[in-house]
Write a protein that binds this DNA or RNA. Structure first.
Lengths: 216, 216
DNA sequence: TTAAAAATACGACATTTTACGTATTGTAAT
DNA sequence: ATTACAATACGTAAAATGTCGTATTTTTAA
């Protein structure tokens, strides 16, 4: 089966360089390229029948980390390998947190790039040895793994938090109503308000977002 | 310069196998081998002029994790690559915590083993893609690092895991069907089977249980 | 090469969830 | 005392989910 790939990079010269590297391998087809995260999302909106994305980090409009987070949320079946010149801890850690399946440096040779892609599609992860070393360091020192992201706390009421906590356990509206000794309708309204505040549309997204924001 | 290596394994047959793999490369010399951690320490006591140790985990007297910790404490200049048949999260995490510079599976081919050693000596880390993947998961989910209790692994199929992963993002059945390019009915059936295996009755419970069991 | 397991698909039905709108009562701060 | 917000509650309706059953095709393993 032919591997369907896409390349995202704001430097068209570098896109060509990657295409060139991949051109040696007949079982990989570059379906399209995008010049930034936003452009990528547009493409995916049309067609997300894709196996893997090779993603740069430094890009205008929507950078590679942000784009990775969105793509992984919406199209979890697509693998993403970060392909960049920067190998600082913060980029690596944030990329991994965002859900990247691999992290290679642009200087990678064609064979390693190809093998990285294949290994990633086989459930492994593509990593440069120097990147691997940094991830090991990060694992050893969880201290420096603090959440870099700034979050302006979302104002949920006490009762809403209670409801959210029960939601997160997988309880039904009726069970929650029963637990908190109010009507089903009340729970429904609370949840409606919670969804509005969190800007989500179902239980799982609400629980995810609440956890990311340390609300529960 | 010739690389000075040592091999530690309680199975002498496997020691020979590793030596065999390294014999292709003239710039590596196996200075000695040891049959357990204690034996290794004795050897090092005599002579710790060594570049790298290839270390098994499961060994009597003093296992590979403990030995790694001691060697790294006493002889920090010596690199250590874990070479084992086991790739469970706990071993990987503990080995890294103990200071291992790499983690390869015994099935590794000669070239990858050699390159792993060279890269490690150049300040990188040697890692099998499947190991790399597990370290990424560990980095993303620091919670499950502690949580090493019971889990008689529940047998979900590859496809079921994929579906579960998408479920965990809060996607609807239709979105999942769209992403995986199958019908809504197929997704429904997969989820039905997942619920049966996990003994749950809704998305949130399924995702919770799956995370607790390191299925996703 | 068979048998078993996995992946695919559809129909039907009950239940639950999501998303509106509206409205009353309680509470806390100004 | 007034205002704002929180908590409560109900109705309606569309959409999504959960639970059955059945069945074909594909893949894997014995």
């Amino acid at each position: 089966m032919i591997i369907k790939a896409a390349i995202v990079d704001d430097n068209s010269f570098l896109i060509s360089a990657v295409k060139e590297k991949l051109s040696f391998f007949t079982d990989i087809e570059v379906k399209f390229s995008a010049v930034n995260g936003s452009d990528l999302l547009d493409h995916l909106n049309d067609n997300h029948n894709l196996d893997i994305i090779l993603m740069d980090i430094e890009m205008p409009v929507l950078n590679g980390i942000e784009a990775t987070e969105i793509v992984k949320q919406k199209y979890p079946h697509i693998k993403i390998i970060i392909l960049t010149v920067f190998d600082n801890d913060e980029n690596i850690f944030n990329a991994i947190k965002a859900g990247a399946d691999g992290y290679l440096l642009k200087e990678v040779n064609p064979r390693d790039l190809y093998e990285g892609i294949v290994e990633t599609l086989n459930g492994g992860a593509a990593m440069n040895p120097s990147i691997a070393f940094k991830t090991l360091k990060l694992l050893r020192n969880p201290i420096q793994i603090e959440n870099k992201v700034e979050q302006e706390s979302i104002a949920l009421t006490k009762r809403e938090i209670e409801v959210l906590e029960q939601l997160s356990k997988g309880l039904s509206y009726n069970a929650i109503a029963d637990n908190l000794i109010v009507s089903n309708g009340t729970i429904r309204k609370h949840i409606e308000n919670i969804y509005k505040k969190l800007q989500v549309h179902n239980k799982l997204e609400a629980v995810q977002k609440a956890k990311r924001n340390n609300l529960i």
